[in-house]
Each structure stands twice: as structure tokens, then as C-alpha cells.
């Protein structure tokens, strides 16, 4: 186990180096000069050149990368151009905001998908199965940003039950997930984020469960006189590695891919930060956010791999 874990961890190093090169290069390739956002339209070329030099953007790109990666290695992601604050602090704070709603969303999606998947597989072809399938297709098909806008119109504008935007009445610094007056700001983002993984995971759970329920050992369990609830429990254990893999994958997607939902709700997470960094051409913030998100995605996948191998040791041998 330890050997397997060590090998998997070593494999993440070249992945992270590759990710760092790609994210640095992508930002550089993007059109537009980052200092232009910091200049008035009537500023002179000399002003632009001076500012470019001040941010080290006049150096060769390779040298810029080496300087940047050198700082990253000691935990310094640079200073945000627009906020004059350390990027690392901003990214990790935003990551915390996203991580909580993403974990809640995917956990809800996982729990419900197991219930719906089991119902669908156990009653294959019945009305309940069709209802589960319809719900799953809806979850997969509905664009989350559209759903977010609809939720806002319905629950905020028409009913006035939930706030439309932001993270708490006094901002994220005073936010508590354990106080309803704050938490209600998170309800709609969580719902909008949970629906797509719910659809995907329900489909996966249903098909895995249906496959397991048709296997011989299920027949043996029934022949031994186990109750249906016990049979389902045994079947569930068998689909857990896939469910866990889906959980990790979906969590990774939500952490990096919630740009639109977070923008609609102005939820100050990594997606919102990324959007802001793109629009304001805040290069250090953009590079730092992408790198951290990629690293988190890699780490989540690593953790899921290791957990899967703990649950099912056959994976280590493969």
C-alpha cells in the first residue's frame, strides 16, 4: 500500500510541472497587454513601458516563468496587481469558499444519487425508474448558469425567500455556515451546483447497481435467505469504488468549473476570482488561481485513487 501511495505521489510531480508550464503559457498567449488595464486610455507608451518594467513583464518569457516557478516553490504566488495583496492568501480564501459549497453539493448529489440509483436499478423499467432517469437527464442537460438565473428569479425576485447574490449580509469575512441568516446565501449556489453531478452520478449508480444486481453472488445471497435490504447493502459496497471515483471527479469539476454559477451569485469563490482575474487581466492572480485549482484537482484525484485502493485492494495490483 505504502509503495503504491508513494509511486502515485511521485507521479503527481511531473503532472504539476506540466500544469504550471501550461497555465503560465496560456496566460501569456492570451491577447492583450496586462498593464493596459492599469493604464488610462490616454496614458503614453512610456507610461506603459515603465509599468511593464515595474511588474517584470519586460523580461524574456522563459525568465519570467523561472522567476515565477521559483517563487511558487517557496509558497509565494506573487502579488495581485489589482488588489496589492498576496495571491496565495486570496486564492486559498476563495478556495475555502468554493470548497465548502462544492463538498456540500457533491455530498448531497452522492447521497441522493445512491438512493435514486438503487431505486432505478432495483425497479428497472418501472415508473420510478423512468422518473429517476428523467431526473438524471434533466440534471445533466440543464446548464447550471441558466438554472442559477431561474432560481434567482423564482426564489429571490418572486418569492423573496432567499437572497440573490453575495456571501452573507456582511460579506464573506463575517460569514458562518452555522447561522441561517448567512447560510441562506449559500442555498441556491449549492442547489445549482448539485444538480449536474446529481444527474451524472445517478446515471452511473443506476447502471453499476443494475449490473451488480444481475450477478451470481446476489442470487447466492438471496438463496441464503438474506433480506432485500441486506442484499442491497452488499451490492452498494460493490459500487462504492465507482461512486467514490465519480465523487472525486465531480468535486474537481465543481471547484474549477463553477465560474458561471459563482458569477451569477457573486459568490466569492475560485470561479468568481478566476472570472475577475480574466476580466481585469490580473496575471499573477490568474496564474496563481489556475495553478492552485489544477493542483487541487490532482490532489483530489490522488486521494480518490488511494481511497479506492483501500476499499478494493485489487486496484493496487492492477
Amino acid at each position: 500500500m505504502w509503495l503504491y501511495a508513494g509511486r502515485r505521489m511521485l507521479m503527481t510531480i511531473p503532472i504539476l510541472i506540466g500544469v504550471s508550464i501550461i497555465c503560465f503559457a496560456l496566460v501569456k498567449i492570451a491577447p492583450g497587454d496586462p498593464v493596459q488595464n492599469l493604464l488610462s486610455p490616454t496614458a503614453s507608451a512610456a507610461d506603459a513601458a515603465r509599468l511593464r518594467a515595474a511588474y517584470g513583464l519586460d523580461k524574456p518569457v522563459v525568465l519570467q516563468y523561472l522567476i515565477w516557478i521559483g517563487h511558487v516553490c517557496v509558497g509565494d504566488l506573487g502579488m495581485s496587481i489589482s488588489d496589492k495583496t498576496p495571491v496565495a492568501g486570496e486564492v486559498f480564501e476563495a478556495l475555502g469558499h468554493t470548497l465548502v459549497i462544492a463538498v456540500i453539493s457533491v455530498s448531497i448529489a452522492l447521497a441522493l444519487s445512491l438512493i435514486f440509483g438503487v431505486i432505478g436499478a432495483y425497479r428497472a423499467g418501472a415508473v420510478s425508474d423512468r422518473a429517476v432517469t428523467a431526473m438524471a437527464v434533466f440534471g445533466i442537460s440543464v446548464p447550471p448558469f441558466w438554472l442559477a438565473v431561474v432560481l434567482v428569479i423564482f426564489f429571490s425576485v418572486n418569492l423573496g425567500w432567499l437572497p440573490a447574490t453575495g456571501m452573507g449580509p456582511n460579506g464573506s469575512e463575517a460569514f458562518s455556515y452555522f447561522r441561517w441568516s448567512d447560510f441562506k446565501y449559500a442555498v441556491m449556489p449549492i442547489f445549482a451546483l448539485a444538480l449536474p453531478p446529481l444527474g451524472i452520478m445517478t446515471r452511473t449508480t443506476r447502471s453499476s447497481m443494475a449490473e451488480i444486481l444481475n450477478q451470481d453472488f446476489i442470487l447466492t445471497l438471496r438463496a441464503k435467505g438474506l433480506s432485500e435490504a441486506q442484499v442491497i447493502r452488499h451490492a452498494l459496497v460493490n459500487i462504492m469504488p465507482q461512486a467514490l471515483a465519480m465523487f472525486g471527479l465531480q468535486l474537481g469539476y465543481l471547484i474549477g468549473g463553477s465560474v458561471l454559477v459563482e458569477t451569477v451569485f457573486t459568490w466569492p469563490g475560485t470561479g468568481y476570482l478566476l472570472n475577475k482575474a480574466v476580466l481585469t487581466r490580473d496575471i499573477p492572480l490568474l496564474q496563481g488561481t489556475i495553478l492552485v485549482l489544477a493542483a487541487v484537482f490532482v490532489i483530489i484525484n490522488l486521494a480518490v485513487d488511494l481511497l479506492q485502493s483501500l476499499i478494493d485492494p485489487r486496484l493496487q495490483r492492477s
Binding site: V149, V157, P163, A164, T165, T263, F265, L279
Partner: peptide, 14 residues
């Protein structure tokens, strides 16, 4: 930055 969010925020009193 999102125009529909601004309108919703005004309509919901935020």
C-alpha cells in the same frame, strides 16, 4: 458584472 444579477439584486432589495 452580470447584468441579470444586478437586476435581481435590486428587485430582491439587496
Amino acid at each position: 458584472p452580470e447584468a441579470s444579477t444586478r437586476a435581481a439584486a435590486l428587485l430582491s432589495g439587496q
